[in-house]
Simulated scan of single mutants.
Amino acid sequence: MKDKKENKKRMNNYVRFSSVAIQMGIVITIAALGGDYLDEKQENDFPIWTLVLTLIAIFGSLYQVIRAVIKMSKENDDSKR
């Protein structure tokens, strides 16, 4: 019974982080495409908008991952008590 619960919790963690990874990819791609669009619209020689928006998306995504890991860690600590 305990092994079943543990396996289910482990699978939930895999699903949670798989969805976070997919979401990261989508957000970063949208930011890069949006930056490319703005750079073309402004006829920039250097792709400043692409760079800025992509970096913001990367840092935002990393923040989200760190927050999810901390939350999962707290949930695991609470369940062990």
Rank of each mutant, 00 (worst) to 15 (best):
W49L: 01
S79L: 13
K9E: 12
N7D: 08
A68L: 14
K8A: 12
T54I: 02
P47E: 14
V65T: 01
A57K: 00
V27A: 07
L51T: 11
V65R: 01
S19D: 07
A32M: 07
R81P: 00
K80D: 08
V15C: 09
Y14F: 15
F46N: 04
S79M: 08
K2E: 05
L51Y: 08
E75T: 06
D3W: 08
A21G: 14
Y63M: 14
I56G: 10
K4M: 07
M72P: 00
E40D: 14
R10H: 12
N7R: 13
E75R: 10
G35F: 02
F46H: 04
I48R: 09
L51V: 06
E6W: 08
G60K: 04
F59L: 07
K74T: 03
I66D: 02
L53H: 05
K9S: 05
I26V: 15
Q42P: 00
D36I: 01
E43C: 05
F59Q: 03
E40Q: 13
R10N: 11
S19P: 01
A57H: 01
K9F: 12
I28Y: 11
K9Q: 06
I28M: 08
F59N: 03
V15W: 09
K4H: 09
L33G: 03
E75A: 06
I70M: 09
E43N: 13
E6F: 15
K8M: 11
I48L: 13
S61H: 00
T29N: 06
S18H: 02
N13R: 01
M1S: 08
Y63L: 09
V65D: 04
F59W: 12
I28W: 08
P47M: 10
R16L: 15
S61D: 02
D39V: 06
I22M: 03
V69Q: 11
K2W: 04
G34V: 02
L38Q: 00
D77W: 09
L53G: 03
F59V: 02
V20E: 08
W49A: 10
S73H: 12
A68R: 09
Y14R: 13
D78P: 04
E40K: 14
I66C: 01
L51S: 13
I30Q: 06
R16S: 06
K4I: 15
E75M: 03
S61F: 00
V69E: 10
K41G: 00
T29A: 13
N44P: 00
G25K: 15
N7I: 12
N7S: 14
I70V: 14
D77H: 10
L33D: 06
I48Q: 10
N44F: 02
G35Y: 03
N7V: 04
I66V: 09
D45I: 11
T54G: 15
R10W: 15
V69S: 09
N13H: 06
I22D: 00
D78Q: 14
F46Y: 06
L62V: 12
D77I: 13
A68K: 09
R10C: 04
A57L: 09
N76F: 10
K4N: 06
G34Q: 00
V52I: 15
K5S: 14
M72K: 04
N7K: 11
I28C: 11
N12S: 14
W49M: 12
Q42Y: 10
G34H: 01
I66S: 06
L62D: 04
A32K: 04
R16N: 12
I22R: 04
F17W: 03
D77V: 10
K80Y: 12
